[in-house]
Design a protein around this nucleic acid. Structure first.
Length: 475
DNA sequence: TCTGGGGTCCTAGGACCC
DNA sequence: TCTGGGGTCCTAGGACCC
């Protein structure tokens, strides 16, 4: 066990909202809510001004709007947050080489790795104040709250006690009494379900927890959880600060504004998600063996289907193919509100493509998958088709019918959905992008003839014949 | 107008092998 | 023919975190 409070936990105050207030001076001092702004959005971060009205993280945006109608409601700008986060993390790394980021706005810093020892409460307080000043300077005015103690648990809990813009250092040797009066839910990992079980055993505070013996705790909440909870409650937490934790999975998911029943539309969306997962795997130089498809029903019940390949892949076609098969095995009757595609069992190397053949052996799937035949061919658009518009940029067809086509615009790099707009099918501004998947027999119009031509040239560029069914022309 | 999106870790059961 | 244990891998679901 450490003998001085050398672990810091740094937590940026209302991070997303604070960045927006930094970049838009008119929002300073006003309620700001960052999160999903659609029908089914939830709040990511509320500024302190908005919290006065009861707006909280994870609350539905609809409820937030009713509590604080005059707040500014903003969609998240993750790229900006990421850059700001990097600048902040750099300040911590300047203090100590051992920094463990937990998210964009939180990190542990181990001062002992900086060669600092025998630290008093006054020493650590001064270090924390200096760090806060450096963070404020480097981030363009963001404040942080810092907790310090002899362990991660103590530092983490301490950083929450004087928010925003505070510093709390817990002296070595006082940990158990520091924790004792607190509710068990202050311990990270104790959520509603565990709290409920513990309360049935008469445990509400950490002091209650400290009275329980380990075997009893394991009986209540299971082996792993019970053991770790017992250690945390008695403040015997010697978990190290770990600077590079490996990624275990990569996934993309989307909740739809309204439930989707149409299988061909879901397949097209699933293909897109597979491509985005692949892009992120490739960027991180990762590949994985297990593909998972997640569906959430109208009643919020959630199901996953997964399939493990013989070797790792980052190939969008392979991920899309497996995902499509898993989705075909899923019950979507009644419609689904969410679809997700993920890859896990990650390796930092990519096996040759050989395994792919054996994987698909028992479930033959055409290398070039065409979207199912559109139900409404006379409109000339089908779900998933790539289009472009001079004003809105590149997008893809979300749905069509009755002489109109609905398009979702999003940039390839963005993970968040863009705007959805509806056009007349003969709108001259809406152009079909060259697309592999358009069946050749439909090459009646000039555009379609170009499509067929493009399909052939795409074929030439992919001698395997395995051009993506979706997204060929996307930048 | 209920309930996001990105993750991590754990459990439990079945298959399969020794 | 019956009875078994242990280990590993895979799958599905759940709790939890920011």
């Amino acid at each position: 066990m450490r003998t001085d409070p050398s672990i810091l936990h740094v937590d940026l105050d209302a991070f997303f909202a604070a960045v927006e207030q930094r970049d838009k001076p008119s929002l300073r001092g006003k309620p700001v809510v960052v999160g999903g702004i659609g029908l089914r959005g939830v709040v990511s971060t509320a500024s302190y001004e908005a919290r006065k009205y009861g707006v909280r993280s994870a609350m539905s945006t609809a409820e937030a709007r009713s509590r604080c109608p005059h707040a500014a409601y903003l969609g998240p700008r993750f790229e900006i947050y990421r850059l700001t986060s990097q600048a902040v993390m750099a300040q911590m790394r300047a203090l100590s080489p051992l920094v463990e980021p937990l998210s964009l706005d939180e990190a542990f810093v181990d001062l002992s790795a900086a060669g600092l020892s025998g630290l008093t409460v006054e020493d650590v307080t001064a270090i924390a104040e200096d760090l806060k000043a450096a963070i404020e300077e480097a981030s363009g005015g963001l404040t942080a709250s810092v907790g310090a103690g002899t362990s991660k648990l103590i530092a983490k809990i301490a950083s929450d006690l004087d928010k925003p813009n505070g510093v709390v250092v817990v002296p070595a040797g006082t940990e158990a009494e520091f924790l004792a009066p607190m509710q068990v839910t202050v311990i990270p990992g104790v959520g509603p379900a565990t709290a409920q079980r513990l309360s049935m055993a008469g445990v509400r505070t950490v002091a209650d927890l400290q009275q329980l013996d380990e075997e009893e705790l394991v009986r209540q909440v299971g082996s792993a959880h019970g053991t770790s909870l017992f250690r945390l409650a008695t403040a015997s937490d010697d978990r190290p600060v770990v600077s590079d934790r490996e990624t275990k999975s990569v996934s993309v998911e989307d909740t739809f504004e309204t439930d989707i029943i149409d299988r061909s539309l879901l397949s097209a969306i699933g293909d897109r998600m597979a491509h985005r997962v692949s892009e992120r795997l490739q960027k991180a130089q990762l590949s994985g063996r297990t593909v998972t498809v997640k569906t959430r029903m109208h009643d919020f019940t959630t199901h996953t289907r997964s399939s493990t390949l013989a070797g790792p892949t980052d190939d969008p076609r392979v991920i899309a193919r497996v995902a499509r098969r898993l989705l075909d095995d899923s019950d979507i009757s009644g419609g689904i509100r969410l679809l997700g595609v993920g890859v896990s069992s990650l390796a930092d190397w990519i096996q040759d493509d050989l395994f792919t053949e054996s994987e698909t052996e028992d479930t033959p799937i055409d290398l070039v998958e065409l979207p199912e035949r559109p139900r409404d061919r006379q409109v000339g658009y089908y779900p998933g088709q790539d289009v472009t518009h001079p004003q809105y940029g590149d997008g893809w067809v979300w749905g069509s019918g009755r002489g109109r086509v609905t398009v979702r615009f999003e940039t390839a790099a963005s993970t968040s959905p863009g705007p959805v707009r509806t056009f007349a099918v003969d709108d001259p501004d809406l152009t079909k992008l060259l697309h592999q998947a358009e069946p050749a027999e439909d090459a009646e119009t000039t555009e379609d003839a170009e499509d067929a031509q493009a399909a052939r040239s795409t074929e030439a560029a992919h001698p395997s014949g395995a051009a993506e069914s979706i997204g060929v022309a996307r930048g």
